[in-house]
Amino acid sequence: MTLPNTTASCLDPIALERLQELDPSGANKLIERVVAAYLKALDRMLPELSEARGETLDLNVVRHISHTLKSSSASLGAMELSERCATIETMVRMGQTEGLDVLLDGMLEQVALVRQALLDLSPNAS
């Protein structure tokens, strides 16, 4: 699998190859379906995260979303995003909120990069 330039910068090709090995011929469109599910989940979770960051910070929602994104991002090879999510999840579990906004902003910037890379990889998944 040859990755577009934007993809190569934020998605681990080995993780993508592992996914591709599950559907070597591409007949089942596994990667497209996984990407579509991931993007749909982002469309659902990001507004929830935005609301959770409102006037009263809802740490349970932040923890849940960071935990969910940590795992699903890793499975698609978005390792930097997964690591950011892990850091946020750990902070929230420990009740630390100082600097959380900056980390969440960084996570959202990485989400945008990953989203674009996935769209480049599988344009029909949107």
Rank of each mutant, 00 (worst) to 15 (best):
D58N: 11
V114G: 04
A74R: 08
G77E: 02
S25P: 07
T68S: 13
R53Q: 14
S75I: 12
S50R: 11
S72P: 14
T56N: 07
G26M: 01
L100T: 01
S82E: 13
L49A: 00
E109P: 12
L59E: 09
L103A: 07
E83R: 07
D58L: 03
A27D: 13
R44S: 14
D58M: 07
T56C: 06
P13Y: 03
I31N: 01
G95T: 01
K29I: 00
D120S: 12
E55S: 15
S75D: 13
P123A: 03
S73D: 11
R18I: 13
V34S: 05
M1G: 10
D23Y: 00
E32C: 04
M1T: 15
A27Y: 00
T87Y: 03
E48H: 00
M1L: 11
S122T: 03
H64R: 14
G106D: 14
E17A: 13
T68D: 06
E109S: 12
S71T: 14
L104P: 06
A8R: 15
L103E: 08
L69H: 05
A74P: 13
S75M: 10
V35R: 01
H67P: 03
I14T: 15
A36F: 11
S122C: 05
S25M: 06
D23H: 02
L108A: 08
S75G: 13
S72W: 07
G26H: 02
S50G: 15
Q116G: 12
E89M: 04
L69E: 00
M79G: 08
S82D: 12
V102W: 02
